[in-house]
């Protein structure tokens, strides 16, 4: 049996909203350590890797490792029925072909239960080595979302140039061109508002902005986003999920033909 309970069910709903535009279905790997998921988009340009550690749940029980094929589209629809302060329990009974989502209102007066059929999915797993990136930019996730949205107006691609002083996002297309430069924050009252840059080497990489905008669907999970970059290496775009884990998106760069 698998059973995991989250007092703040809305966190789980935000995780699903963060994933479901990039991947519509995925296999959840459940073990004693927690829940992990790795999935690529259909064109194999971007990948998402999710970790939710067991100690982040109020209660967590996983008697044996399970691979659960789940439609994220359907799960998202079910989770929309959850109240904003509801507690969420996810359960898979032994020998069952369904996942059960139970939602309980804070005053414990309302209790809803939905079942979603599990799917048989082919999953391809990519090994992603630990990487010492040349540059890690940390910035407010709302600011990153706004920049990606704005860059998409100008063109299909965005070039991210990072130096020790700042980071520049630039795009050009048929309508024209533009760029936004953010300087490293010198002093900020709140850490979540800061832009900080750890840099060993300056980098300039070009990415399809459409994917970056999909990654930004996960921005409501976290005040800050980390962008890790090295030349000729996929971008790693990370949002923390509270203290319990993270969503990491990987995106292959574009190269000059």
């Amino acid at each position: 049996m698998f059973e995991a309970r989250l007092a703040q069910g809305s966190i789980f709903a935000k995780v699903i909203e963060g994933l479901r535009e990039l991947v519509t279905e995925a296999t959840w790997e459940c073990s004693g350590n927690g829940i992990t998921l790795q999935a690529m988009d259909s064109s194999h340009v971007a990948l998402v890797s999710l970790v939710l550690r067991s100690d982040g749940f109020e209660t967590y029980r996983c008697d044996r490792n399970m691979s659960l094929g789940i439609s994220l589209t359907s799960m998202s629809k079910v989770l929309k029925m959850m109240g904003k302060d509801d507690t969420l329990t996810i359960r898979v009974n032994d020998d069952s072909d369904a996942i059960v989502l139970s939602m309980e209102s804070q005053n414990q007066e309302e209790f809803a239960e939905y079942e979603l059929r599990l799917m048989d999915l082919d999953s391809e797993h990519l090994g992603i080595p630990d990487t010492d990136y040349s540059c890690v930019v940390k910035m407010p996730s709302t600011k990153f979302s706004r920049i990606c949205r704005d860059m998409a107006i100008l063109g299909d691609s965005v070039t991210i140039c990072s130096t020790k002083d700042g980071v520049k996002f630039g795009a050009k297309g048929d309508v024209g061109q533009g760029s936004i430069r953010l300087n490293q924050s010198t002093n900020v009252d709140k850490e979540e508002d800061a832009v900080s840059i750890e840099l060993r080497e300056a980098v300039a990489l070009t990415f399809a902005v459409r994917y970056l905008n999909m990654f930004c669907k996960a921005a409501p999970l976290s005040n800050q986003v980390n962008l890790s970059m090295s030349e000729d290496t996929p971008l790693m775009c990370e949002f923390k999920v509270g203290d319990m884990g993270h969503i990491r998106f990987y995106l292959a760069p574009k190269i000059e033909d």
């Binding site: 194999h44 340009v45 990519l126 090994g127 080595p129 070009t206 292959a252």
Partner: peptide, 14 residues
């Protein structure tokens, strides 16, 4: 002209 790469150029299956 820019060309989009795929992740399999960087990471291996398995």
């Amino acid at each position: 002209k820019q060309q989009q790469q795929t992740l399999s150029s960087f990471y291996h299956y398995g």
